[in-house]
Amino acid sequence: HMTFVALYDYVASGETDLSFKKGERLQIVNNTEGDWWLAHSLTTGRTGYISSNYVAPSD
């Protein structure tokens, strides 16, 4: 899985979204569905959809 880092804080707007904080590391589970990616937070252990605009590759 690809690992990304959050560029900004994000508060989930629905049950399927994932809230995260700036600097949080996220593993991308599925990024084939446009701008919203299914991600797993390595910080909180939660999984949900994130906006690809809010993250950048961590490598």
Rank of each mutant, 00 (worst) to 15 (best):
Y54S: 13
I28N: 05
P57G: 07
V11G: 04
L42N: 05
T16F: 15
R25Y: 14
K21T: 09
L18E: 01
N53Y: 14
T47K: 07
A39G: 05
K22Y: 04
Y10Q: 03
S51A: 09
V5I: 13
Y54E: 04
T16E: 12
Y49E: 04
A6I: 03
V55E: 02
D9I: 04
D17E: 15
E33V: 11
T32S: 13
H1W: 12
N31H: 12
G14Q: 13
V29C: 14
L7T: 05
V55D: 02
T47C: 12
S58E: 15
H1A: 11
G34T: 09
T32A: 11
A39H: 00
V55F: 10
T44H: 02
G34C: 07
T44P: 00
H40W: 07
I50R: 00
A39Y: 03
V11I: 13
L7M: 08
A39W: 02
Q27T: 11
H1E: 12
L7E: 04
V5D: 04
E33T: 12
D35P: 08
K21Q: 11
Y49K: 05
S58H: 12
Y10E: 03
D59S: 12
L18D: 01
T3I: 15
D17N: 10
I28M: 06
F20W: 02
V55M: 06
D17P: 02
P57C: 09
D59M: 12
Y54H: 11
D35E: 13
P57W: 10
Y8W: 09
D17W: 14
T3G: 05
T32R: 10
S13W: 09
H40T: 15
R25N: 06
T16V: 09
G34Y: 08
V11H: 10
V55Q: 03
G45M: 05
R46M: 12
H1S: 13
S19V: 04
Y49W: 14
F20E: 00
H1D: 12
W36Q: 10
D17C: 15
E33M: 12
G48Q: 01
F20A: 01
L38K: 03
W37S: 01
D59L: 12
A56N: 07
D35K: 09
E33K: 11
H1V: 12
T43E: 13
V11F: 10
A6P: 01
Y54W: 09
S13G: 08
G34A: 11
F20N: 00
E15P: 14
W37V: 07
K21R: 11
E33F: 11
T44I: 06
V29S: 06
L18G: 01
N53Q: 14
W36G: 05
S41N: 12
G14Y: 12
F4W: 13
E33C: 14
D9V: 03
Y10F: 09
E24V: 01
G34K: 11
